[in-house]
Amino acid sequence: MKRATLYAINEARRDKRAVVRAVDLASGEERLIDIASAGASPLERAAINAARTDKSGSFEDDGRNWFLAVYSPPLDLAIVGAAHIAQVLSQTAWLAGYGVRIIDPRTAFATAERFPNVAISHDWPDEALAKAPLGMRSALVALTHDPKIDDPALQTALRSSCFYIGALGSKKTHAGRLARLKAAGFSDSELARIHGPIGLNIGARSPAEIAISILAEMTIRLRTDGEWEHRAARTTA
């Protein structure tokens, strides 16, 4: 690898741009492909596909054996509501490689002491998410139970390409939430993106166990094509 290629990959990571490095395994010859501006050659198309599935792998083209190494932007978790569950979830998600941000306009909840390693915003969710939008590598988890705070966050998430949306609350709370969002103009298929009650049904009781069930459900959405979905009954957390 050329020194300049290493620097360019690290710069792309900092700028949250997806890049794929193709390297010829016989000669070491390399090409760095910026996914946003990649063209239509077979190698570039393979790179785009590798980036979309976030999967590095081999690719043969014209008798040459390339390895496509995917460098995806970091994962992003926006937690709305600085609740007790959020304290544990922010730490477990951080360990799993997410950049974590807490959004809560209630300043007494979201403090640096309660949330180390985490970016804290005291803006309202729709404002915070306008400043730093959700993308394909983003998950949004709404934990306040308060429609004033959760609903604007969920509406913004539903209009984004984020891979996971979850909302804490009982079946009854969730039914009320869906009715409000429907009245706001969202269709049933759009609303099906919201995981509620949140988390996989692992019998979670404590905040830490609920955080694990949420992170497990996020992982299914991120890493599988949903084949787990029908097996994954919901908690009533």
Partner: peptide
């Protein structure tokens, strides 16, 4: 994770 590896490589260089 991989990005930290490449950051470390850059620091060493």
């Amino acid at each position: 994770d991989t990005d930290d590896v490449l950051d470390t490589a850059q620091q060493w260089l």
